[in-house]
Design a protein around this nucleic acid. Structure first.
Lengths: 190, 190
DNA sequence: TTCATTTCTTTACAATTGTTAACGCACGAC
DNA sequence: GTCGTGCGTTAACAATTGTAAAGAAATGAA
């Protein structure tokens, strides 16, 4: 249950067994069905999730439409980060796209870990740095690449998601309409 | 010289006077002219900068063209973060847009601070979290907003930069051509 | 100052994308 | 099984953006 979790953590910080134990005990296991909301627009996100199994989508709502902001895969921490980190209401919704197995920690429990476990600050720092670099890479694709190049990049890196996820969710993540993405797919198929 | 620096830091973490002193001594003051490269594509970024005065631009090179990825203002930490954090060669160039007064710290000195000053991890974590949230906000503007809305948002938040920075640099930052931005400006002027 | 360069705008045309609607298809609910 | 819903593609047209080129204004260097 925690194997992928520890594997991910150990790539970032080397904890002692005691620290690992303390970390584990702060998380709880939770299974949620498909289309379950883990965080909601207008509310304060109070929990952070590590995805053991399944897929989670972060989206924004504009004109009644859902625009995908990010897709979280297995062995990643997911949250409505903006709301979670500021503990203020946000505009992001976090929703499962498949039945999910999750490890859950509350904001308060996380602060307790930061307060009582010095190395936790380091873990938090490095994960935040990773997330920032990742966000910056995606952002650079919007200023550097055409929509077609952006689709190709996505296909190369996350091609499997094209089979697991409705295309219109990927299209909005790539900053285009489903119609436009369909045209790009047709162009590239030749 | 350090007043804006300490003011910024104190918004994030409350250090003791001794800690502030240790932090200060790790930075050195440096003045650089306009168009000076602080980090370069293909090289490893070895320094992090706090901007006391001036403007710094981060850009990518594509087909011989410079595409702006970010504009750093006074009282912000600036770096080719991708390269700096991974200590590997990156694709970002960091260049001053005005004569700048900077506080500089090397990667090694920063690691020393992390090792010898426990609260430093917390500072690093919170700054990384801020940068991540900021990057995510800009990213959301690319999937949620039209180019025109994106320009209006930029004007509202950083309108002063329209007078300090060549427009074509802002245009590429907003993911459009100078021609298109000029058309948007004309539309909005009415 | 003078000259060269950069910057910003404008124009005309090509290419791409957005919008709306229609169609076939797969899937789940009942 | 049948029905309804959601999904992906295609089409046609409108709107927007990109491209290339030209010119005026501002800027910087000699």
């Amino acid at each position: 249950m925690f194997s992928g979790f520890h594997q991910y953590i150990s790539q970032v910080v080397s904890f002692t067994d005691k620290e690992k134990e303390q970390l584990e005990s702060a998380f709880s296991f939770r299974q949620v069905p498909k289309k379950f909301k883990l965080a909601e627009e207008g509310k304060v996100a109070r929990e952070l999730f590590f995805i053991v199994r399944g897929l989670v989508r972060l989206y924004y709502t504009k004109d009644g439409q859902e625009i995908t902001g990010f897709i979280f895969r297995e062995n990643l921490f997911a949250a409505g980060y903006d709301s979670f980190l500021r503990q203020a209401s946000g505009i992001q919704t976090l929703e499962t796209m498949e039945d999910c197995d999750l490890l859950v920690i509350s904001y308060q429990q996380m602060q307790d870990l930061y307060a009582t476990m010095p190395r936790m600050q380091e873990l938090g720092r490095k994960i935040a740095e990773q997330r920032f670099i990742n966000a910056q890479m995606i952002l650079s694709s919007f200023v550097l690449d055409t929509p077609e190049e952006r689709y190709r990049r996505f296909e190369a890196q996350h091609g499997d998601l094209l089979l697991r996820v409705p295309h219109h969710m990927i299209a909005s993540f790539l900053g285009m309409t489903p119609v436009s993405m369909s045209r790009i797919r047709k162009r590239l198929a030749k």
